[in-house]
Design a protein around this nucleic acid. Sequence first.
DNA 1: CAAAGAATATGACACAATGTCAATAAGGTA
DNA 2: TACCTTATTGACATTGTGTCATATTCTTTG
Lengths: 204, 204
Amino acid sequence: MDNSKVGDKRHLRSLMTRHKLLEVAKEIFLEEGFQAAVISQMIKKANIGYGTAYVHFKGKEDLLIVLMENIMEQFYEIAETSFFPKSKDEANHIINKQANAFLKMAEAERNMMQVFEQAIGISTVISDKWKAIRMKFIQRISKDVVYAQQNGLARAELNHELVAKGWFFTNEMYLWEIVRNEHQSSIEEIAQTITSVYFEGLYL
Amino acid sequence: MDNSKVGDKRHLRSLMTRHKLLEVAKEIFLEEGFQAAVISQMIKKANIGYGTAYVHFKGKEDLLIVLMENIMEQFYEIAETSFFPKSKDEANHIINKQANAFLKMAEAERNMMQVFEQAIGISTVISDKWKAIRMKFIQRISKDVVYAQQNGLARAELNHELVAKGWFFTNEMYLWEIVRNEHQSSIEEIAQTITSVYFEGLYL
DNA sequence: CAAAGAATATGACACAATGTCAATAAGGTA
DNA sequence: TACCTTATTGACATTGTGTCATATTCTTTG
């Protein structure tokens, strides 16, 4: 019913071109990193005309954003995990699990995340995308802290927003460390340790 | 005795040129940020010949590194503060003070730190400089944690390296938030809150 | 099915910025 | 003064970007 012209031969070719370019872009981003990746190189490798790339995408940034969509989606999913523990133990368990999932993402998508990290430092648009993800997490954690405080599980005198940020920040920095493959300990141990300090620091 | 030719008119002129360029570079970095700052613009504003800039500095990075040296020095000083608390209370106090000093740096040097943050994302050399500072802090904190553990002040079952990193990471991220002027709460409250969670989480 | 029309693709071009280098200027020395 | 050393210079080659008028390819219409 919708998109009546989707079966077009033309439109199809257009899609193929776009797809080919994305594919090649990914390869080159992974090989070169965001900074060093060069559009003209992608164009050559994709065997399309120079201007064609600019018909489909505004530039490097635009290309990467599309390539990252999948990963960003996954982050949002993790951020949305619900949190209604009945007990201290259950809370500890849930928090630990979330930290683990978050850090595992770094490992699973390490290569693209490396490109992403570079891009965050360079492109405003991409940096904003990450900020949105971060905000989502912080809001989520903030709610969790409030919930725990209201249910007498956590120290009520602490500013939940500040606590939430601090906790997320630790997680985020470890995320990048794992992305860069600079971590010494296992993800499990990292998650376990930071959760433990956070948990004992916040919960009663 | 040393540098016998330092009084030279020639050498002096060279120093003046270098100085002038640095001065202008700072202005332009502050106006434009690292990314957008353009060497040719600096050269024009400094009223020197194009090639001259490259005699004195290898490029943008090199210029910024020199401009940052003072600030980096200050970070090293903070990192070197000694830590030998006799009691839990004293420990809490020292840690809070350090976190405060660290975050205050962000505020005091906000403008150059903004440039620095951008540059970290772009230039490997500068990123390495920051990594060195970070490592210094983490080593320092790590030692402090071990000290506290050995003196029966802190939970001995925790991996001190992981704890130290986690704690520094929270501080660092707040540092950047303050640099970007995105913080809502006062520095004192931030330091107070994160210290409190860390402290109660780690200490007995 | 031919001609008109619409969507895509193309690459030459204009621009912006970088770093190098052979030539030049200026200061110091004997 | 003549010669050596150090510092400065800007034209040039290079690399990459994004745009736009033109060409190609497909679809529709009479």
